[in-house]
Design a protein around this nucleic acid. Sequence first.
DNA 1: GATGAATGAGGTTTCATTCAT
DNA 2: TATGAATGAAACCTCATTCAT
Lengths: 188, 188, 188, 188
Amino acid sequence: MPREKNQEKRQAFLRAAVAEIAKSGTETSTARIARRAGLAESTLFTYFPSKSALLNVLYIELKDKVYQALNRDFPADAGLYARARHIWVGTLAWGVKSPNERKASLHLHLSNAITAATRAHTDARSVEVRKTMAELSTQGIFRELPTNFSATAMGAMQDAVLEEIARNRKDQAVLIAKGFEAFWRMCL
Amino acid sequence: MPREKNQEKRQAFLRAAVAEIAKSGTETSTARIARRAGLAESTLFTYFPSKSALLNVLYIELKDKVYQALNRDFPADAGLYARARHIWVGTLAWGVKSPNERKASLHLHLSNAITAATRAHTDARSVEVRKTMAELSTQGIFRELPTNFSATAMGAMQDAVLEEIARNRKDQAVLIAKGFEAFWRMCL
Amino acid sequence: MPREKNQEKRQAFLRAAVAEIAKSGTETSTARIARRAGLAESTLFTYFPSKSALLNVLYIELKDKVYQALNRDFPADAGLYARARHIWVGTLAWGVKSPNERKASLHLHLSNAITAATRAHTDARSVEVRKTMAELSTQGIFRELPTNFSATAMGAMQDAVLEEIARNRKDQAVLIAKGFEAFWRMCL
Amino acid sequence: MPREKNQEKRQAFLRAAVAEIAKSGTETSTARIARRAGLAESTLFTYFPSKSALLNVLYIELKDKVYQALNRDFPADAGLYARARHIWVGTLAWGVKSPNERKASLHLHLSNAITAATRAHTDARSVEVRKTMAELSTQGIFRELPTNFSATAMGAMQDAVLEEIARNRKDQAVLIAKGFEAFWRMCL
DNA sequence: GATGAATGAGGTTTCATTCAT
DNA sequence: TATGAATGAAACCTCATTCAT
């Protein structure tokens, strides 16, 4: 099984897809993805049975990368504030470092090509994170809102921070810190 | 006066476009839009010179509807809390009543087909709203964050509320009220 | 029968067709012809049963105008030189005065839309001219070439003169005169 | 080496285009060209990026073929009569042998799809011919007419000869020879 | 008689995918 | 395995023509 070589080209397609989807959305063509990957369009279909499959694989890989990073040094025994802050900082660090991956991830999230199975798969990687978010839901105003609300709100606030960072490159660390303070204020 | 009929079909295309774009994004085809409108595809082009023109017209009509509702009874002389709450409640009322229009609006907002002129046009309708959001930016933690942050954050929080409402149809009024409380907490 | 009014609009369509065909060829659209005529596209079809019919009518009218002008003061009793020169000068005068009509006429001549019947009709108007051309065919080198050759050659030479005039607006009279001298040289 | 097959299909498209354009002009559809070539319409676009590109390539190939034939045994050191006769005979030989190519070439020459760059390219191939035609312009009656006139007149006269040949298949050689005599008479 | 509205047919081009090599 | 070649389906859009008013 010549896995090694395979993986290189496979990754080339995935990397190219990230760049193209970030630029033009999921409706970008397989031709453009292959061209950017420096490979033939038909070769794409030896690694992925269809464009839709490529999209789903990519979605999973992108989500996995974030959750692996968050899980690696997750302070499972620390207090709620520390754990929430870990999630906040880790997610934003990824968003700042890999703006294209984040953009592509958002495009994929909205795409009809992403199946329910794919969405479910991603949930499996986010156990620790979800546990913390559930705990957040018992705090302050969140007690009176549905369980998922805290997670949704945090994601939304992170989007706001990233949008600001994209617009205003300086003081990323400050924006991230102040943003978390604003978020945490809701939990008190 | 063939105006009446004219407008009817035109509206049929716009309504069909809302539904299709909400379902499949702006890359949906003119064929599908026309089919849903119950008219021939070529007829679409007697009402709109191009698909792009249809998208821009639709974007303006959707945005206008929201801002007209917000402006109609805007409490311009009331305190900041009242004005912010007006915007929060008004926007969410529209989002709840017209989920497809909101989804379509979000898709359109991201589309490359929407021109700068179209975006500028909608800015003109949102003067009062933008004034209030600017004032919010001078409050609490927002003082230490960029000017646009309060508006971005409010939009993000509203997304969270609407997502919750979509998942859990009951108690919309409560969700909206509690959601604003959570948001306002950030401003103190 | 409200002929008068009819004729006005009919002529408007024909005039517009001349201009559009001169500019863009016979594949120009009925929409563009009608727009230039200042009338509705569908009105065109109350005057002509089809686009093809319009083209054929126009071809006949254009050819008739030339031959009527040539026939009006045709020096039927003069010598061959005078008659040939009359044809030469008359045709070129029209070509110079009505460049669009000439261009349209050339486009129509090549079009598959022009029927054999239409082409035959035109022949009927050109009796005098053809008689003179036949006589030319008995002169000099033409004697050893097919009967039609003299006419074809004259048309070709006129095209050359008109092309020159189009390129070089001055000295039209000289170009026309010298051109005929060149042509006549062949007949000696 | 998949070149062989490549070129075959490419030539099939070009040959089909010649036939269709000769019959119906440059407004013929890519569907008809492909059908005549015995290939799928979409395949056409793997050989030519657009219909316009196909037209330009075809124009260049047709013109090149003529000029290459003329240049191959061009009697550059012979007298003016011999050189003019070489051009006359060579051009007509091609016109007689390839009537469709000639018709297509004429259609292409008038088409708006042919770019200035394409026209410039063909000028480069016609240096020897243009030099001879310029010299012709200093002879006889041509001295008193614009520089381009001799070339335009020769082209026009050749049209006349070819029209005759098309009508009357016999005695091509005689028609060509006598036709040149008629033309040459103008130069004396 | 004149027209706005409507449309089926057809235009060029792009796309995801298959297949032979 | 990797790919050039091929293609049916579908994209957006234009056109000549019909029809109700």
